[in-house]
Amino acid sequence: MTAALALARRHGALAVGGLLLAGFVLLALCGPWLGGADAQAMLPGQRLRAPSALHWFGSDRLGRDVFARVVHGSGASLAVGLAVALLSGLVGTLLGLLAGYVRWLDGIIMRVMDGVMAIPGIMVAIALVSVLDAGLGTVIAAIGINDIPRVARLVRGALLSLREEPYVEAATMLGTSGAGIVFRHMLPGVLAPLAVLCTHIAASAMLLEATLSFLGLGLPPDIPSWGNIMADGRTLFRVAPWIILFPGLTLASAVFAINLLGDGLQDALEARRG
């Protein structure tokens, strides 16, 4: 606890980002109780109402309470960020480890990664969403695939440089098994930059979800998310700005928190190394 406090004092960004993010996670977990009103309830005669005591964030074009939707939507939005970071982090690390350690696989894996990177991410996402039913899983997969090569490259690059490190050479000479070397000796060296990359992936994934929603290809209206609430009100920007503004601010601050966390993490790691 004291160590955490000391760390927080030294790295303000890390602390602020972490706290903000913790707040959002709490919001997502308690959403169903906090949001109160049903996020799908369509109140007749209450369309496009400006923020008031009754509707804190106003109401949307179907007469739904924007506050309730933003609160309920925090779950889906954060889930997208988290799951994409996990998915691309895990798959990317695995591929990166294979490429970095198994020499004959290196060429194949990295060529495939090049191929994936050569197709613009937004196109992969649109194509996937239009092939599969639009749902949480589809959106996560569609966004996650794009980030796998970034992770794989990072891990492989780090591994290639670590392979030359004396302690790894020593371990090899002492007869430690391949997998043992990778997991016990090399992986820990990669973890720090990987964590930083994953925070950035999570942040950009949440934004990309909003972009997909903007194109009408995000999460179905059944599952509110900050992205699809905004997308729903996007053409009403000058009529009912609150539909975009509040989820937009919420999204921006959540992404901000994650980015801050990532930056803080990087600074902290650099400080430790330096």
């Binding site: 239009s130 639009a134 179905p220 209206p221 059944d222």
Partner: peptide
């Protein structure tokens, strides 16, 4: 059970 998809699909 709502299955969401684009218009063309």
């Amino acid at each position: 059970d709502v299955r969401a998809m684009d218009w063309s699909t």
